[in-house]
Design a protein around this nucleic acid. Structure first.
Lengths: 140, 140
DNA sequence: TGTTAAACTTAGAACGAGTCTAAAGATTGC
DNA sequence: GCAATCTTTAGACTCGTTCTAAGTTTAACA
């Protein structure tokens, strides 16, 4: 499981290292989302990738996001009423979600300590733990 | 914030206590989901409530679920790739989600201990913390 | 009780996010 | 250079959910 992208690697190399053929569209998307930790929705990416010329189709955006998630280059984050975000920060961390603004932010793994994981049956393995802290800016 | 429904209360009384006018449809739905802790999707409820006569519309099912969530009689749980479930267990607890079967289960609050909550700005208050443990049955 | 206003429910249209399709385009191996 | 494979595309489609406008129920109170 990939945890973070080495600084020196080009997107091209990163993709190859994951067994992904680096097509023009994938590299373009990769440059937008993999070079720094960021949160975004598929919709936002689709708009952004198409701001400057050379149209990339919706299907390709979704396919590429799915591929990146599968290869552990991105993770999906669910918040609000079923809204799907993508997160290119692959280090261990959690999220806070502002229920009013819809804003999503990172919480360093060290700031939340999870103890006493539930005991599970022998054949059940834990894939991961998602923690979302819902916050609200005080009315006063 | 309501945490659990007193045993002796009728659904009718529970709804009134929350400021909800107990219409026939709301009481019918309430009886199905509020009398015991259960997980379900809107789709599942819509089918179940319409199995035995007296059709209830999709709009009313969604409106009622939204209302119950707003009044803290139900909570929403997000799992998988954006799937929305409802949970009538309002005691403090978390969830595990079997990524293969799609099955959702409860984890008692005591089994997961969250420490050292992130310090937040003065005007930010924590509304709640959602923890989902993703599990997978071992292949072997 | 009868009347009225407000609240609720309804069917079906509309919506948005995401997936599928079939065809065209790019890439690879030989 | 050719064939096989993989990728991208536009647009149709699906699914869960929300909206709309009309009809129905409920509550208040004369």
């Amino acid at each position: 499981m990939r945890r973070s992208r080495p600084e020196h690697e080009s997107i091209d190399e990163t993709l190859r290292a994951c067994g992904i053929i680096p097509t023009a569209q994938r590299v373009r998307i990769g440059r937008m989302v993999l070079t720094r930790p960021t949160h975004f929705s598929a919709e936002q990416l689709y708009e952004r990738v198409n701001l400057a010329g050379n149209h990339v189709s919706k299907a390709t955006v979704y396919n590429t996001l799915g591929l990146f998630v599968e290869k552990d280059l991105l993770r999906r984050v669910l918040v609000g009423t079923g809204k799907v975000f993508y997160d290119s920060n692959m280090t261990a961390h959690h999220h806070f979600y502002d229920v009013e603004s819809g804003e999503l932010g990172d919480i360093d793994a060290g700031e939340i300590e999870i103890r006493a994981l539930p005991k599970t049956a022998d054949d059940v393995q834990i894939e991961g733990i998602d923690v979302v802290v819902r916050v609200r800016r005080a009315a006063s």
